[in-house]
């Protein structure tokens, strides 16, 4: 058997698991000019390691190493049946599926936008349950299967505007958050609702690095949460949410910057006080609790008056950002009388 054949590769030549696992990473990051490429060129040792990862790949397979990449279709492309189409966003040009699923801000799987699609392959969105606690009649949990049956699923085509100045148009599948809140039975003290994401260092490698205060948390005021526009998404493009998009369930609040949409939610907590979110902790002068899309309120780093539409092409330029991301009619009244410059 091949396995028993004496290897003619000395152990020191065999690529370490880490280097091997990251080989795609090295290649992918080279052009972006990420850490790896520069380190590889600056340090001969690392450079050798990268080269080796290519040359000993075959040898690794030969001696039955356990680190061959997992099958690429672990759970992806599971169709959702029995959802209705809504009129939201009909006529908008959708961002291609490939872009929606390969360009993700999901730091639990790495800070580079291409990383989540790769690093989330081993993530297990099922079995899954969501705990409800805080200002509720009584604490309870609900499984993801029950969530799928909680309310009729519908497709909603929403614009998504990232605080970094880019946007997408995504056909989500989900149900109004209000339905889940009705099931959760908050008591009269509940003024805010907080969403807590999963942070499992085994399945989510990014959470090993203290870039944000894990677990990721986000929050909404109750009236925002109850607004019919606010949905819990369980799918996109007719299929269950890909892991990199927040499987199995994520928040979508289309008039707010994308980071408000907590992904892989494991806990929903009702509170009487405004929760301090991960991004508020990370940069209090940059990220506020409300984070409404607002072209009039500048961000210290990014232009908020215009945005780049993903998938529009190299020469498309930018489009004007709309107040409340174009959803003023539905949500404008929520903020009547509020200073949105102060409550950014």
């Amino acid at each position: 058997m091949l396995i028993h054949k004496k290897s003619d590769i000395i152990p020191s030549e065999i690529t370490s698991k880490e280097v091997f696992d990251n080989r795609r990473h090295f290649i992918q990051q080279a052009g972006f000019g990420m850490l790896a490429s520069s380190a590889a060129i600056l340090s001969p040792a690392l450079q050798a390691a990268t080269l080796n990862s290519g040359t000993t790949e075959g040898a690794g397979r030969l001696i039955g190493r356990a680190n061959t990449p997992p099958p690429l279709t672990l759970r992806s492309h599971q169709k959702i049946t029995g959802y209705t189409k809504s009129t939201y966003g009909v006529g908008e040009k959708l961002t291609p599926y490939a872009d929606v699923t390969t360009y993700n801000n999901y730091y639990e799987f790495g800070t580079d936008k291409a990383e989540p699609a790769i690093q989330s392959k081993l993530f297990k969105p099922s079995p899954w349950s969501v705990a409800v606690e805080g200002e509720v009649k009584k604490n309870k949990t609900i499984s993801i299967d029950e969530i799928f049956k909680l309310a009729p699923l519908e497709e909603r085509i929403y614009r998504m505007r990232c605080v970094e100045g880019w946007s997408m148009v995504i056909p989500w599948i989900g149900f109004p958050l209000a339905q889940l809140i009705k099931w959760a039975e908050p008591n009269s003290n509940a003024r805010y609702v907080e969403f807590i994401s999963k942070a499992d260092p085994q399945e989510m490698p990014g959470t090993n690095i203290p870039i944000l205060d894990w677990p990721y948390n986000e929050g909404l005021r109750m009236d925002e949460a109850m607004n019919p526009l606010t949905i819990m998404a369980v799918g996109l493009y007719g299929e269950q949410l890909p892991n990199q998009n927040g499987a199995p369930m994520r928040l979508v609040v289309p008039w707010k910057y994308g980071f408000k949409g907590a992904k892989a939610i494991v806990k929903i907590r009702f509170t009487d006080k405004m929760p301090t979110t991960s991004w508020m902790k990370a940069g209090p002068n940059e990220y506020g609790f409300y984070a409404n899309v607002n072209p009039q309120v500048e961000h210290p780093r990014w232009t908020q008056s215009s945005e780049k539409r993903i998938g529009a092409g190299l020469f498309a330029g930018r489009i004007k950002t709309q107040m409340f991301n174009g959803y003023t009619e539905q949500v404008g009244q929520i903020y009547a009388g509020m200073d949105l410059r102060k409550n950014f």
Binding site: F32, W166, L314
Partner: peptide, 15 residues
């Protein structure tokens, strides 16, 4: 050039 080619080129040339 990724989903955001402009950003990709900006990052790459900048790097």
């Amino acid at each position: 050039l990724s989903a955001n080619p402009v950003e990709f080129i900006e990052r790459s040339t900048g790097f």
